[in-house]
């Protein structure tokens, strides 16, 4: 293949959208052609630059969208069920057809009650089939887990509600749900189990929005050892500059033990790249007459 042909394929090559043979040809060509390798690198730069422009919707926006949708769906559901079902049923037919439909309904009820076995219970909400095996008389035996939805409503002070909310702070697939549960629980931060859940979220939640929410909720307890230790961990290791910034502000504003804080800040100065956080650390260390870094 010529260089022009290879360059035409590079776009799809980057996304793994070529056939096996095409990919082989590109690989072989790239191994010997410097110019096409440069073109491939340029394409990678373009992709990286595009990645930098990606925007992520905030969790607040997600939460607002969900609330609005829920309200609109509730209204639509109410409208569609406000008429009695028999009126909807009959409103479609002609006058002549109505007696026939009535008889049909009666017949369906009469025979249905006799034909449907009593053991035929409502289908489970969700099934996860574990295994299938042959049974006697050509039947098949299926073992499955059944999941059903339940609902409770109550105040955050109710033990059951609180436990459900605490469990929701660990919901693995839905950061929006985790943020909402932190929001509901933050007024009960005086409870140790709530603080523990927030500390865990602050240190290990994969979502920046959830970590920030937990940090905000823990602010009144920033003087406590467990919270300070979490803030220190976050300051030294969190990937988000926003979380690290809020963490240093909180640690500095609520400091009790100067030498402990100096140690943390010196450690931070060795690894921090963000200019605001470095400046903040430098100012505090200078005010303490401490050296900027440990050697």
């Amino acid at each position: 293949m010529s260089c022009d042909e290879i360059r035409d394929l590079l776009v799809l090559y980057a996304y793994g959208e070529l056939t096996f043979d095409q990919e082989e040809s590109v690989d072989a060509h790239l191994a010997v052609c410097e110019a096409c390798k440069l073109e491939q690198a340029a394409l990678a730069e373009l992709h990286a630059a595009a990645d930098d422009q990606a925007v992520a919707p905030s969790l607040e926006l997600l939460s607002a969208c969900r609330q609005e949708l829920r309200a609109q769906v509730a209204v639509m559901a109410k409208v569609s069920t406000s008429e009695p079902f028999w009126r909807r049923w009959f409103s479609g037919g002609t006058w002549v057809a109505k007696p026939a439909m009535t008889m049909g309904l009666l017949a369906a009820g009469f025979f249905g009650a006799r034909l449907v076995p009593v053991t035929n219970v409502a289908a489970p909400v969700a099934r996860n089939v574990r295994f299938i095996e042959p049974a006697s008389d050509g039947q098949v035996r299926i073992v499955y887990d059944e999941v059903s939805q339940k609902e409770i409503a109550g105040r955050v002070d109710d033990r059951m509600v609180r436990e459900m909310l605490l469990s929701a702070t660990r919901s693995p697939n839905d950061p929006g749900l985790r943020v909402d549960s932190v929001e509901y629980l933050k007024t009960r931060c005086e409870r140790e189990e709530v603080r523990k859940a927030f500390v865990r979220a602050l240190v290990s939640d994969p979502n920046e929005g959830v970590r920030l929410k937990a940090l905000e909720a823990l602010k009144p307890y920033a003087g406590e050892m467990e919270v300070r230790s979490a803030l220190t961990k976050v300051l030294l290791a969190d990937q988000s500059a926003t979380v690290r910034t809020q963490s240093i502000d909180l640690l500095v504003n609520t400091r009790r033990n100067e030498s402990e804080l100096a140690g943390v800040l010196q450690d931070m100065m060795r690894r921090e790249e963000n200019s605001y956080i470095r400046q903040r650390g430098r100012t505090v260390l200078q005010a303490m007459n401490a050296s900027l870094e440990t050697f």
């Binding site: 609330q67 829920r70 969700a126 996860n128 999941v147 939805q149 339940k150 609902e151 409770i152 409503a153 509600v161 459900m164 909310l165 469990s167 929701a168 919901s171 839905d174 749900l177 909402d180 549960s181 509901y184």
Partner: peptide, 12 residues
């Protein structure tokens, strides 16, 4: 909102 969040948490 609260009702919904809990309900969703209880679902698999």
């Amino acid at each position: 909102m609260l009702k919904q969040s809990i309900s969703t948490a209880a679902v698999a």
